[in-house]
Structure formats: structure tokens, C-alpha cells
Design a protein around this nucleic acid. Structure first.
Lengths: 128, 128
DNA sequence: TGACAATGTATCAATGAGTGATACTATATG
DNA sequence: CATATAGTATCACTCATTGATACATTGTCA
């Protein structure tokens, strides 16, 4: 449900943030849902709980979750206020996709394979 | 033609590798083309030339370019031998795309917008 | 041919982000 | 009220990234 890669160059806390944002984006997590305690999630992932705490703090700053001592952490919003201007956001996303597609081409995937791959994911994401 | 972000968590040499791979994948750079000297590209990007040298070395290990002292660096292949097993490669690419799509959804893009965005890029990438 | 310029390579040092260990504070619950 | 559970704060360590410097190889031109 939430996996990380210790080998990846992207920091673990960033991976956790991205993963949870994705779960929220897909509706797997919605307003009111509780997140696991930092120590438990850390144990599940095999990392230090401070790293999870940091991820929770960043998600808190984004206004997606709310943490309180002793009470735990809950999702408070399923829609995030875009941080940058839409045009910038679009460029950022296009750039990420472009990178992935270039990888796919170098790896020998065909355009149809890629398109169907994307289609399946789009349907899954925007389904509800 | 090749831009990097010092603020990004992903290392500069990785960004350079990704950028050049992308230029090769798109055909902007093809077999026989010369890459700028490490010192020049480093100056253009405002970074240390060792960082560029490291990127060149990694691309050399991938079999995409060839460097020689005094002579410079040239592109020797437009197709890369996949390093990992196809299944892993596929999972990696799918995961990258999934992240980008989740971002897109959180940013408020519609499925159609995303699909057309991808379509345009796929056509551009696989055009030749 | 010889001197010099241009290019990539090797090695080591410094910096800093990420991660982890530890102690602390607040809330819930019996 | 006592204890367990949860998040927070602070500090130290490690390691990758980056940069500085010196070196080796090839090209060029007088």
C-alpha cells in the first residue's frame, strides 16, 4: 500500500510524501481517515520514525493532514491548494512525464504499449 | 537545451544523465554528434566540471557515448542496452508515470487533458 | 618536430542533507 | 492518577555529492 526504495536517490521522506499524496489523490485515503502512528509506519517500512515524522510534517504544511500529540494523525483534505501557478505546475508535470517516456523509449517500449500503460493508470486514477 | 535545478533533491549528475538520455531518445542527439567539453558544459550550467565528467562517465558505462582524453566525447549509440530485467524496468517506468499522474490529478487536471498531453509527447518521441 | 592548448581522468577534501538515537511533551484511557 | 500512546525537539553521525587540484592523453600549429 506504500512502498519505498532505499536505493533511490530521492529521499525517503519525499517518497513517503509522494506515496501518501498519491493515496489521497486516488481516494484510497479520504477526509477523516487516520494515518498509522509514525513509529508503526516506520517499523513497517524498516526505517527511523523521525523520517516518517518529517513526512507527516511536510504533509501538514501542505494542508493535507493534521497531527496532534497523543491523538494521532488524520487526513483533513483531499484537494490540495496548488503551490505554484498552473502554467508552472503543468510544465513540471509535463517534464516528469517526458522523462518517463524518454526512459520508456530507450528501454524499447512501443508507443502503443506506453499509451495503454498510461490509459490504464488514468482510468484507475480518475475512476471514482 | 539542457537545464538543471540546483534546488532539486535529485543529484546534478543524474539530472545531466537524464537530460542527455532524453536528447538522445528524442533524436536531437544522434550517433556521431559531439558533446561539449566537460569544462564548457559545466560553465554553461554554472557547476563544477567534475560533475559533468561524472555524468559523461555514467553515460559511457551505459554505452551511449564514448570519451577519450584530448579528443572529446561523441554519441555512439541511440539505443541503450537495458540494464535491468524488462519487468523491473517496466515497473520503474510505470511508477514514475503514476507519480506524475497523481500530481496531475491533485493539480486539478482532467483525464482528457492528461491523455492529450501524453499523446502529444508520445507522437513527438516516436515520430521518426 | 616541438611547444602549447584542449580534453578527459584520478584523487582527495569539504560540505550538507538525510537519517537515526535519545529525551521530551501532550493526550487518551482505565 | 498512572500508564500507554502519540507527536515533537534536539543533537550527532554518516555518506553521497560536489568541488579543488594535479595529471595523462591527444590535437594543432609554428
Amino acid at each position: 500500500m506504500l512502498s519505498i526504495s532505499l536505493a533511490s536517490p530521492v529521499p525517503i521522506h519525499d517518497q513517503i510524501v509522494a506515496g501518501l499524496r498519491r493515496l489521497i489523490a486516488t481516494g484510497t485515503l479520504t477526509e477523516g481517515d487516520e494515518l498509522p502512528p509514525v513509529r508503526q509506519l516506520a517499523a513497517d517500512l524498516g526505517i527511523n520514525f523521525n523520517t516518517v515524522a518529517r513526512a507527516y510534517r511536510e504533509l501538514t504544511d501542505m494542508g493535507l493532514i493534521l497531527s496532534a500529540r497523543g491523538r494521532g494523525t488524520v487526513v483533513i483534505s483531499a484537494t490540495e491548494r496548488p503551490s505554484g501557478r498552473p502554467a508552472e505546475e503543468r510544465r513540471r508535470i509535463e517534464s516528469t512525464i517526458a522523462g518517463a517516456l524518454a526512459d520508456a523509449r530507450l528501454a524499447g517500449f512501443s508507443p502503443d504499449e506506453v499509451r495503454s500503460m498510461v490509459d490504464r493508470q488514468v482510468q484507475a486514477l480518475w475512476k471514482p
